[in-house]
Design a protein around this nucleic acid. Structure first.
Length: 113
DNA sequence: CTGATGACTATAG
DNA sequence: CCTATAGCCATCA
């Protein structure tokens, strides 16, 4: 597995319960600006046992990236709602739920593992 | 090797 | 809301 993937997974794991982030935001925080697609690809290749909160990652409009009514779409929606996040029409209000890490969090938070 | 694809995004009509 | 374009890059046929 590449170092890029490790950075991406570490960043996604840093998203707190009940908050969400966009693919582009994860890429930027992971030190990979403009690599949103890579984030999507990395999550796509996750294995079942992975301890990565992939469901907390949405596109730039706060929408679930899967086709509406598909199985993964419904699973992600359920996981988000289970964390108290309102999902209306496959969309989440980023103004309310977007993860905005503090400097402290970025420097000393979840660590790099 | 070459070209297409995708859990993306920003900008422009 | 829609389409089109351009950037991005690991993966796959």
């Amino acid at each position: 597995m590449s170092d890029r993937y490790r950075r991406i997974y570490a960043t996604v794991r840093a998203i707190p319960y009940g908050r969400v982030a966009s693919y582009g935001q994860i890429a930027a925080l992971a030190g990979l600006p403009r690599q949103a697609r890579l984030v999507g690809y990395a999550l796509h290749r996750l294995e079942d046992g992975a301890t990565v909160p992939w469901h907390r990652v949405l596109n730039a409009q706060g929408r679930i990236a899967f086709p509406p009514h598909s199985t993964p779409y419904q699973r992600q929606q359920a996981l988000l709602q289970a964390e108290g996040i309102a999902v209306i029409g496959g969309k989440v209000d980023l103004r309310q739920y977007r993860w905005q890490p503090s400097l402290d969090e970025l420097l000393w938070g979840p660590g790099e593992a």
